[in-house]
Amino acid sequence: MPLSSIVIILAMVGYAVYRQSQRHEIVGSSRFKLAIIYGVVGIAIGGYHVPAGGLAWTFLLVSIALSVVVGLARGRFTRVWPENGGVWAQGTPLSIGLFLGLVVAKFALGTVAYFTGVSDSGGIGEVLLMIAVMVAFQAEIVWRRARPLGARESSADGVRVAR
């Protein structure tokens, strides 16, 4: 893996952990922004290849399923509360740990696939795409929890200030 890819993944993981530790207002229309960023960067970096065989497809499907399950769990365990006319969210140590665990698990799956000869074509782009899937599922669950509490659908609905 090129050094530039390692720097990019470390920067994006660091940014994600930072963002999760900060409180932010939930706005429905922008809930997939981070997932889109991860997806675009993952595609731009490359390193994703269509699986060549049945076992490689199994590894890919397990990876996607893991991203979905972790995203659903993170959405459930993200702290959500109404305040000052808005609805706010902040990651918890558990939701941040689940994120880091997914990154480690994805690298572990790729390593096992490589050393068992199942696939040697996985890369950093694939990891970022799996993170994008997780973040998208998390964002939807958080949105579904926040909407009944009065979360705004769009930024045009008024600006809230964190205190």
Score class of each variant (00 low, 15 high):
G28A: 07
I45V: 15
L3N: 02
Y48Q: 05
Q138T: 05
V62S: 03
R147S: 08
E25L: 04
W81N: 13
G42P: 14
A52C: 01
Q90N: 06
P51A: 12
V161C: 02
Y38E: 04
A136W: 05
Y38F: 15
A113N: 11
V135W: 00
I9T: 14
G125P: 14
A73K: 09
I64S: 07
V112Y: 12
G122S: 13
Y114I: 02
G46F: 03
K106R: 10
R147A: 15
P148S: 09
I26D: 02
Q22L: 10
F32G: 02
E140C: 04
V142E: 15
G110D: 12
M12E: 01
Y15C: 00
R31V: 04
M12W: 15
L66K: 12
M1A: 04
R74P: 10
S154G: 01
P2F: 05
F137C: 13
F32Y: 14
L61S: 13
P148R: 11
V80T: 06
L94N: 11
W143L: 12
M1I: 08
L129V: 15
A113C: 03
V41P: 02
S4F: 15
L100R: 05
L94M: 12
L3I: 14
I64C: 05
T92P: 02
V41H: 09
V161Y: 14
P148A: 12
F115Q: 13
L61R: 01
I141P: 05
G122H: 11
I9S: 09
A89C: 02
L55R: 08
F115D: 08
A151M: 12
G46N: 03
F77H: 15
I9G: 03
A16T: 15
A11D: 10
I9L: 15
L149A: 09
I43E: 10
P51C: 10
I26K: 11
L100H: 04
E140S: 12
E140T: 11
K106I: 14
S21Q: 04
V127G: 07
L72N: 08
A44Y: 03
G125D: 07
